[in-house]
């Protein structure tokens, strides 16, 4: 039975000095395993914050989220072991080599073949000659590939990507998008992408535009190009 994530009446706001800033109000969203979603919208609309809520990395100010797995409803914090997150700022550990960064999630799970699998994934993203380089020795695009390999290496059920092609040239962006969507398709994983790129957003099955704290949903299902 496919798993899904459900956000109900989720609102997010924060306090800066004396002002309360509300990013969005009463949002409802369901993310199904095996489907792809793109969230677009202007800068500061709260897309990244929404992504952290759906992935269970942050609690909503009001409302709640559930993770339904094999028919069982759980809190979103339980979702963490089934997600792979690709951050806009990559968030690679500077002290580890590319190989060890990718192997990290496997090591956290006690996988004895961590290094072997990580090597294979680095090769898959075209970095087999950069295995022993530390993040500071890699370009932005290379760091992005390492971050993607790290998020996908343990074959999560849900993949979240925050501006995964934002730092890349067009050729690289297409390559990265291919990797993401292919992996999603191969593993029957859900992919949720926050992006400013229309090309990337158009490849997703579902597209949401977050404007003024509200969703404007469009479906790309009729477009054959992008479903995974």
């Amino acid at each position: 039975m496919p798993s899904y994530i459900e956000l109900k009446n989720a609102s997010q706001s924060f306090q800066t000095n004396d002002t309360q800033v509300t990013l969005f109000n009463n949002l409802n969203l369901t993310v199904h395993q095996g489907e792809s979603y793109a969230i677009t919208g202007p800068s500061g609309a709260g897309k990244s914050s929404l992504l952290t809520l759906i992935s269970g990395l942050e609690q909503p100010s009001t409302g709640h989220g559930v993770y339904v797995n094999a028919g069982q409803s759980k809190a979103l914090s339980e979702l963490r072991s089934d997600i792979g997150f690709i951050f806009q700022q990559f968030h690679l550990l500077p002290e580890l080599t590319a190989l060890n960064n990718v192997a990290l999630p496997l090591k956290l799970r006690g996988d004895k073949d961590a290094i072997k699998k990580a090597t294979a994934w680095l090769s898959k993203v075209g970095l087999n000659d950069r295995i022993n380089h530390k993040p500071s020795e890699l370009s932005g695009g290379e760091q992005q590939r390492v971050a993607i390999a790290r998020a996908l290496v343990f074959q999560p059920k849900f993949i979240f990507a925050d501006e995964p092609t934002g730092n890349l040239d067009q050729k690289c962006a297409i390559e990265i998008a291919d990797i993401l969507f292919t992996c999603c398709q191969e593993n029957n994983a859900a992919l949720v992408v926050v992006t400013h790129s229309d090309a990337l957003a158009n490849r997703a099955t579902h597209q949401f535009s977050l404007i003024d704290g509200q969703f404007n949903q469009q479906s790309n299902q009729t477009l054959e190009v992008a479903s995974c």
Binding site: S55, L57, R80, S81, D82, H91, L104, P105, L108, F154
Partner: peptide, 16 residues
């Protein structure tokens, strides 16, 4: 914090 945040975003629990 940074290290734990990365680990937790990759599936580790707070306890780990």
């Amino acid at each position: 914090q940074y290290f734990s945040a990365i680990c937790m975003s990759l599936g580790a629990s707070n306890t780990t």
